[in-house]
Design a protein around this nucleic acid. Sequence first.
DNA 1: CCGTCGTCTTGACAACTGTCAAGGGTTTTC
DNA 2: GAAAACCCTTGACAGTTGTCAAGACGACGG
Lengths: 217, 217
Amino acid sequence: MSSAIAGAAADGSVAVGGRKAPADKYDERRRALGDSALRTLGELGYARASLREIANNSEFSHGVVHYYFEDKHDLIVYCVREYKSVCVRRYDGVIADSTTPEELVGGFADKLIETLRDEAAMHRLWYDVRTQSMFDDRLRAVAVEIDGWLEEMVGRVVGRYAELAGTVPALPASVLYGIVDGLFQQALLGVTQGREGVLEELHALVHALLPTMVTPA
Amino acid sequence: MSSAIAGAAADGSVAVGGRKAPADKYDERRRALGDSALRTLGELGYARASLREIANNSEFSHGVVHYYFEDKHDLIVYCVREYKSVCVRRYDGVIADSTTPEELVGGFADKLIETLRDEAAMHRLWYDVRTQSMFDDRLRAVAVEIDGWLEEMVGRVVGRYAELAGTVPALPASVLYGIVDGLFQQALLGVTQGREGVLEELHALVHALLPTMVTPA
DNA sequence: CCGTCGTCTTGACAACTGTCAAGGGTTTTC
DNA sequence: GAAAACCCTTGACAGTTGTCAAGACGACGG
């Protein structure tokens, strides 16, 4: 019986207290498997990454996936949501610590090209999942959810920038996100193609564009 | 032997002249199969559309694909390139006929939401292929090529708009394309999710944004 | 009327997929 | 220390995939 999954789902919400709960180890393993899967998924993409390949690149065998996850869809949703939930918090420090508009732009642009350089595989996986969500109903919900997170993130950055500049954003967050996301995606495509200077261009572009996203002071 | 493909490839470039050449029928069939495949691909996406399913939705059997195309990759590249090559010419009439900036914006926005409404499946297929190109080397070339077409298209639209307004674009075509593409993609996601008012919002957005894409007159 | 060429169908192939049942160790519990 | 629970591996399943060879069918030219 698949008591492990059902049981853990029940236990997990109860959040047992005193001793080293078994749910801890379960969640830990689940996270480890998710991390490992994330690497393979980022390398091969949603369609090409089979459960066997994912398991091969981990310390487990291929059958274990169904012990910790309901099915492939469940695993992928878990992985992407896990990654993206920390991803959207990347600029919180910059937002909190910046005291001038220029400082915020610099910090934002720096971290943007940093993640573009270091985590390109994760980003292309996200775009893969979001695109697949247009064909697969089961991915729709999580894609919409994460897209909402990202929109809020961009909204926070531009909102804080406007605040520091003593003004307000010139466009709704959804539009700002669409613009930033489009440019980021183009940069990601450029990175994947091995084009030179992509990171520097995006860095400069952010500096040039952010001031135009708020109403003149 | 696969003489059909090899022979046609050789014939195709020679472009035989006088009589009703067999290459005509060959190309005609190839186009018909491509059209049919395009419908299935737009419905299911790159990964889920099997050659059997594609053939099922056509008047042919599944084996015929390898008579007209080298392999699945060849078929998909042919289809997408074929569709996109007419797609990027969609606004040429508007560009040529408009006599005022406002007229051009209106025509551009109209056609944009028209294709978003009527050909959503084709657009999500394109985004699918472009995203897959980040995982699959064999798709890279065609994705880069088509992305170039689209960038030029946006460049032509904004360039003509600036001309009619007596000024010049404020940003390079690559940036303009990134912005427009990002917003278009968000709208496409919205349409796919069945969100209301997406088309109207994009229409208004184009009207609001295009003037900001040229240097003030 | 025979043979040839172009066109298309059928059937098979090997490989790969997600899924899951059966069972072996290992740990925990009483 | 026996019994139960937990964790994980192995092996198999049914289905699907891209690919291609063998051959049928019809048209056309001799």
